[in-house]
Simulated scan of single mutants.
Amino acid sequence: MNPLRPVILAAAGSGRMKNAVTRVPLTAAVVRRFVAGETRGEPAPVARDLLASGRMISVDFLGEYTTEQSTANAAVAEYMSLIDDLAALEAPHTLVPAVEVSVKRSALVEAAGSRRSPGDFEFRMLYGIRDPEQRRLVDEGHTLRVYLPYGTQWYGYLMRRIAERPANLAFFLRALAERR
């Protein structure tokens, strides 16, 4: 378990920390790498680019701390509008598997030894994570779905992802260093 997890999760609820992250151009740019925006219109260009590159998407309106009925109702309304917006996107894929199976990269070794073809399973990766690897998998004929989050609750989402495992914190810090 990540020993920093309790501290990171406590920071996730801090509006002051979120404001600090948002105000600093360096960290704000890193946030944009992992979250497609705060409003429903912001993910559309990102979604179009991902679809045009042969990747599929799973768009999520973030709601890390939805505990009140009014917030839940607003999320439902957002999702209804999001569905309409996504219907307008032209996806290059004409057939989406009815049953989706998420395969971890470690399972690829098992799949390589079997008689499975690239279309028999689906890779899932996070937006902003290992873009060249995503493109390589698609170029090899694999089906890949990118989890594309957006919404005003991005800060809680990112902090939870960082708290999940120490490697995520290291990845975030590397992304900061790359921006310098």
Rank of each mutant, 00 (worst) to 15 (best):
D60F: 05
G119E: 12
D49W: 01
D120T: 09
S70D: 15
S114K: 12
A112M: 12
A74H: 09
S114T: 12
D85F: 07
S58M: 06
G54S: 06
V76I: 15
Y79G: 05
T94Y: 00
P118R: 08
V76E: 12
I57T: 01
A72F: 15
L86I: 06
D85W: 07
E110V: 08
A88H: 12
A77H: 14
S58V: 04
V101C: 02
A72M: 10
S114H: 07
R116C: 10
I57F: 00
A75V: 04
R124L: 09
R105K: 14
G119D: 15
E78H: 09
A52Q: 01
S58N: 09
R124I: 03
F123H: 09
L89M: 02
L50K: 00
E90H: 13
A112L: 14
E68C: 09
A74Q: 13
R116M: 15
E90V: 10
F121M: 14
G119K: 13
S117G: 13
A107T: 15
T71C: 05
L95V: 13
A52G: 07
P92Y: 02
R105W: 07
L95A: 11
T71L: 11
I57S: 00
D84W: 02
A77G: 14
A72I: 14
V103D: 04
A98K: 04
S81E: 13
A72E: 13
L95P: 02
A87H: 10
V103G: 03
R124N: 06
P92M: 05
E90D: 12
R116S: 13
V59S: 03
I57P: 01
K104E: 14
A91F: 02
S106R: 15
P97D: 06
S102E: 13
